[in-house]
Design a protein around this nucleic acid. Structure first.
Lengths: 143, 143
DNA sequence: CGCGCAATCTTGATTGATTCCAGAAAGTAG
DNA sequence: CTACTTTCTGGAATCAATCAAGATTGCGCG
């Protein structure tokens, strides 16, 4: 787990000002993978006291633009943020309870980047979302 | 393009009552691939006159549950619906204008269904979303 | 060490999609 | 044709997210 000093370095490296809310948001995202915005706001407030949701939204946008965090939007859920950036990985979403797990790319660095017909689109990224049942819901259903 | 009689047959086959709003929604989804809810409501109202948005939401949910339409939720956009069901295909979303195009599965019937580590999840579906620039935005940007 | 600019945060209102609710209407089976 | 059940209508409510204006604060510079 990175330290506050690491987060500060990351912010400076991205030419972003180092502020209390930003360090708290960065820390919260690292501590709570796949957390939705509400959870992040709650975590930040636990750490700092009162913080406006607007600040959190703004910080998340800035961090996303700087590639310090990544935003994912699973179907049937609100936006979620995670700290793993730079590595090509995807997600499994549980159909029943909404749990999310990371999945490393199936076949290589960027296997699905070549669809059979690109319709003239210039593709720069492919995101894969697996749907299914997590271990807990799977056993609960089959029993 | 299927006819009203076809739509009626589809509804009866799914044990759903045949109502005017349902036929209109089914028709609208077939005529406007990847339409968002608002567009579908507008299309239905053009065809039938006043229809409550609640009815459209309800119908779309019923049709989705019956696998007569499919719901997709591209990042940064609202829910959209399409009529292609049963075939495994994915989507390209334009980063700039939000246009959506269909893409047949890259490597086979269900290529990405085998991640390197499934974390104990029971996976039954994989959805791939390609991000990039559509031909129009691509040329507009590079010029 | 203190100043000034510009980015950032606070507060509060607002939008927009979606859902909930109760009653009226309509489709289907018999 | 009748009755039952599903579906639709109309309106209010919820929730995430965005917008706007003014107060703060971080950071670079002298």
């Amino acid at each position: 787990m990175p330290t506050t000093a690491d987060f500060e370095r990351m912010l400076r490296g991205a030419a972003l000002r180092v502020t209390r809310p930003r360090l708290a948001v960065l820390s919260a995202v690292h501590q709570h993978p796949h957390a939705d915005t509400g959870s992040i706001i709650a975590a930040v407030r636990t750490a700092l006291g009162e913080v406006s949701h607007q600040a959190v939204y703004d910080v998340l946008r800035a961090l996303t633009a700087a590639d310090l965090v990544r935003c994912i939007e699973p179907p049937g859920s609100v936006a979620r943020y995670e700290a793993r950036v730079g590595d090509n990985h995807h997600h499994i979403v549980c159909r029943s309870c909404g749990a999310i797990a990371d999945v490393d790319c199936a076949v290589g660095p960027a296997p699905c980047l070549t669809p059979s017909d690109d319709h003239g689109f210039v593709i720069d990224e492919a995101e894969v979302v697996y749907r299914g049942l997590c271990p807990t819901c799977s056993t609960a259903t089959s029993s």
